[in-house]
Simulated scan of single mutants.
Amino acid sequence: MEVKPKNLRQTKSKLPEVRCFQCNKLLFLGIAENVEIKCSRCGTVQCIGSCRQEAKVHISSW
C-alpha cells in the first residue's frame, strides 16, 4: 500500500503556474527548461524556456 503525504496539496501549490497568455488557462505547474505547449482552450502554441519567445497563434477554419 502506497503512503501519500498529508500535505500533498500544499506541495503542488508551491510550484509556479504557467498560464496561456491568450486566455489565461492553466497549462501546467512546475519549472520547464524547454517546452512548446498548445493551449487546449484557444489553440495558442507557446514556447517556454530557452526556445523562441514568440507565440504562434492557431487559426481555426470553422
Results as ranks from 00 to 15, higher is better:
residue 18 V to I: 08
residue 35 V to T: 06
residue 11 T to H: 06
residue 30 G to F: 01
residue 62 W to Y: 12
residue 51 C to A: 11
residue 8 L to E: 08
residue 25 K to A: 14
residue 43 G to P: 10
residue 24 N to K: 09
residue 25 K to T: 14
residue 19 R to P: 07
residue 19 R to T: 07
residue 62 W to Q: 13
residue 43 G to Y: 01
residue 58 H to I: 00
residue 21 F to A: 00
residue 46 Q to S: 12
residue 29 L to M: 12
residue 52 R to D: 13
residue 52 R to W: 12
residue 3 V to L: 13
residue 55 A to P: 10
residue 61 S to L: 14
residue 56 K to R: 02
residue 16 P to M: 09
residue 29 L to V: 07
residue 18 V to T: 04
residue 47 C to P: 01
residue 56 K to L: 07
residue 26 L to A: 07
residue 55 A to K: 06
residue 52 R to E: 07
residue 23 C to I: 10
residue 10 Q to P: 14
residue 19 R to E: 15
residue 10 Q to N: 08
residue 44 T to G: 00
residue 48 I to G: 02
residue 10 Q to A: 15
residue 29 L to R: 11
residue 12 K to R: 15
residue 50 S to G: 09
residue 15 L to K: 10
residue 34 N to S: 02
residue 29 L to S: 13
residue 10 Q to Y: 04
residue 24 N to Y: 01
residue 59 I to M: 12
residue 22 Q to C: 05
residue 13 S to K: 13
residue 4 K to W: 01
residue 13 S to D: 13
residue 31 I to H: 08
residue 34 N to W: 08
residue 47 C to W: 02
residue 53 Q to A: 07
residue 7 N to W: 15
residue 20 C to Y: 06
residue 24 N to G: 07
residue 16 P to C: 11
residue 14 K to D: 13
residue 47 C to H: 03
residue 36 E to T: 12
residue 22 Q to M: 14
residue 12 K to C: 07
residue 37 I to S: 03
residue 4 K to H: 12
residue 10 Q to L: 13
residue 58 H to A: 04
residue 37 I to D: 07
residue 44 T to I: 13
residue 54 E to Y: 03
residue 51 C to R: 07
residue 22 Q to R: 14
residue 11 T to K: 14
residue 18 V to Q: 09
residue 29 L to H: 12
residue 10 Q to C: 01
residue 26 L to R: 00
residue 36 E to C: 05
residue 35 V to L: 03
residue 59 I to L: 06
residue 48 I to L: 07
residue 59 I to R: 00
residue 21 F to I: 13
residue 53 Q to Y: 01
residue 22 Q to F: 15
residue 54 E to N: 03
residue 44 T to F: 04
residue 40 S to W: 02
residue 14 K to L: 12
residue 27 L to T: 01
residue 45 V to A: 04
residue 25 K to C: 15
residue 28 F to T: 06
residue 60 S to D: 15
residue 6 K to M: 14
residue 32 A to N: 05
residue 56 K to A: 10
residue 16 P to W: 09
residue 6 K to S: 09
residue 5 P to L: 05
residue 42 C to V: 12
residue 48 I to A: 00
residue 46 Q to A: 09
residue 31 I to C: 12
residue 24 N to T: 09
residue 2 E to H: 06
residue 58 H to Y: 05
residue 26 L to P: 08
residue 25 K to D: 02
residue 4 K to E: 14
residue 31 I to E: 15
residue 49 G to M: 11
residue 3 V to S: 05
residue 34 N to E: 09
residue 58 H to W: 04
residue 44 T to H: 00
residue 4 K to R: 03
residue 59 I to V: 09
residue 44 T to D: 05
residue 22 Q to P: 02
residue 18 V to E: 08
residue 57 V to M: 01
residue 9 R to K: 10
residue 58 H to P: 05
residue 13 S to M: 07
residue 59 I to W: 01
residue 20 C to I: 03
